[in-house]
């Protein structure tokens, strides 16, 4: 019984890894995705209606800082999160 469960789990893991490799482009890419992407990619705890958390941001000059909520000026505020790569 346990032997068949173990075999099934191995087959399932292989199938998942094959699928990830296909999605990512190669087995190496799949490994990198699992290691570097999955830990950071999550839904978070914020929901519509929640008060937006305030955080400190750095300006492009690299030295001055400002609060995210300081950007609220009586109008809707669109936040665009992202990076270069």
């Amino acid at each position: 019984m346990w032997k068949w469960i173990a075999i099934a789990l191995v087959v399932l893991a292989a199938a998942v890894f094959t699928l990830l490799s296909f999605m990512a482009g190669s087995p190496k890419d799949a490994m990198q995705m699992v290691r570097y992407a999955l830990p950071y990619m999550h839904r978070g705890n914020l929901h519509v209606g929640d008060t937006a958390p305030d955080v400190t941001l750095v300006a492009l000059d690299g030295s001055s800082r400002f609060q995210l909520r300081r950007e609220l000026r009586g109008r809707p505020l669109v936040l665009v999160f992202g990076s270069f790569t």
Binding site: E71, R73, R75, P76, L77, V78, L79, S83
Partner: peptide, 8 residues
């Protein structure tokens, strides 16, 4: 509306 890009 106001916009703010946040580089992460």
């Amino acid at each position: 509306a106001d916009f703010l890009t946040i580089y992460i």
